[in-house]
């Protein structure tokens, strides 16, 4: 459990972090460190330089702005868990935060770090997808905003470029009368999601459905959404949603859950989630 030797630099602003990233060498951003450090200890990840962005004030905090909840990327899971705006407007984010790791992990780990790491079984990706969030990135050549649905591209990979930092997650406040839920079937060892299902039901009848843990990266399930959106949620509609769910997806398989079982669980959890928002 000893990492390869590395340089360490603590930065106090996003600009400084970007300069360090651009300065050449294999720099890697360190936020909470709860994904990166274990990987380094196992020597699976061997960055030459760690740029510590854990104490940049501009990356902390949650605010309401223009009908959105803005979660700065360095906000910890526990800060999200205990935030009133989140509890009021995004109750499924609140529920999800409770399910992440343990107290230590929640105290250190950040939402931006989790999204950038893009673990296929992480919780936040499902939430930002279901909530139609936008992800703000800053880079040496300027800022850009991506839709969550464009952000995740593969196993541990995203649209985030090597010289970019996630600065904030902008989540539209769901209209009055919306209902949301996040349900998770945990891996008993790691307590990561074998299946995580986030559902947001909007008053206009649209239903957003996102899964994590099921495939290489979290995704919105268009098939299931189409089956239920705008419909009366009876047994037939439920059946249809389950049939339509996780179709055309390469499903993960491991010691705890084969692809077949995972697929079954996804359907079970979809049903439970839909029942919860009805």
């Amino acid at each position: 459990m000893i990492p390869v030797a590395f340089e360490y630099k603590k930065v106090s602003s996003v600009e400084e972090a970007l300069t360090s990233l651009a300065s050449g060498g294999e720099g890697k951003l360190l936020a909470g460190g709860y994904s990166l450090i274990p990987a380094m200890k196992l020597r699976l990840n061997q960055p030459a330089l760690l740029i510590d962005i854990g104490d940049i004030p501009a990356l902390k905090g949650i605010r309401e702005e223009d009908g959105e909840i803005v979660i700065n990327a360095g906000t910890t899971h526990n800060d999200i868990l205990h935030n009133d705006l989140i509890q009021q407007h995004l109750p499924f984010f609140h529920e999800a935060a409770k399910m992440i790791g343990d107290e230590q992990v929640r105290n250190r780990g950040t939402m931006g770090g989790s999204l950038a790491h893009a673990d296929p079984a992480a919780d936040w990706p499902a939430l930002v997808l279901a909530a139609d969030a936008n992800i703000e990135l800053a880079g040496t050549s300027g800022k850009r905003t991506l839709k969550a649905t464009e952000f995740f591209t593969g196993l541990f990979s995203t649209e985030l470029q090597e010289n970019e930092i996630i600065t904030a997650i902008r989540v539209p406040i769901p209209a009055e009368g919306s209902k949301s839920v996040y349900l998770k079937f945990e891996n008993p060892a790691s307590r990561f999601a074998i299946v995580g299902c986030a559902v947001l039901r909007l008053p206009d009848g649209r239903i957003n459905i996102a899964f994590t843990g099921v495939a290489d990266f979290a995704f919105r399930d268009a098939g299931a959404e189409k089956a239920v959106s705008g419909k009366t949620m009876d047994d037939a509609a439920m059946q249809e949603a389950q049939t339509a769910a996780v179709v055309g997806v390469d499903i993960l398989s491991d010691n705890f859950a084969s692809a077949e079982y995972r697929k079954h669980l996804a359907k079970v959890y979809l049903k439970r989630a839909l029942q919860a928002v009805m």
Partner: peptide
């Protein structure tokens, strides 16, 4: 499953 992430 030689880590606690995998060995329950």
């Amino acid at each position: 499953n030689a880590t606690y992430m995998d060995y329950c």
